[in-house]
Amino acid sequence: MNRFSIAAIFIVGIGIGIILYLNSIAISMLSKVIELLLYILITIVAITIAYEIKSFKEVIADIHLSLKLIVATILGSVVGGVIVAVVLHGDIIAYLAITLGMGWYTFTGSYLATIDSYLGLLGFTVNMFREITLIILYPILSRKYPIEAISIGGATTMDTTLPIIIRYTNTRISTIAFIHGLVLTLLIPIIIPLLL
């Protein structure tokens, strides 16, 4: 699989999804399969990490990179949300809540939908696009910026986009991505309710 084939497979998938327009039962079954595959994948990734890493020191050695990435991802989301709110004359708090979803669309979408359905739609779609952006861009950006490009994925670098990162990098960078995603996943359910 070369760097562009992941994006190609994904686009083919979208095409199939649009053309077939499956019923909700089929989609919920597909979502279960995705969840199951993710768990299998995370198990395998954890095996690789535990097998390849020489010592605990090796994990700690790169933790500063994970922390820098976390700061960059949060700052990017905050600044981005404010800029968009200023440009579109929108509600800053609402836009901040959407951008601070940082890729976790299931949480952000459903949480914002309890406040306003349009916000829910935005929260869901914007954060889903964040995941898609990483799937498409990471294979290309990982050549020059394997660590920096992790910030694109936000919280998804812990699960759904981790396979892409593993595929194009090594155990060290995968560990950085995993810690980055893990910390953001823990922070998002605290930050968004605090904002609204």
């Binding site: 699989m1 497979i9 998938g13 095409g15 597909l30 994948l41 395998i44 889903m128």
Partner: peptide, 28 residues
């Protein structure tokens, strides 16, 4: 590691395709 890399390749292929199908459906 050799086995794992091949296994990951297959899983990633299926996973990305399935995520794409669900995304297409969601968009529609």
């Amino acid at each position: 590691i050799r086995f794992i890399n091949r296994f990951i390749m297959v899983i990633v292929f299926i996973l990305v395709l399935l995520i794409g199908i669900v995304t297409g459906y969601t968009i529609m």
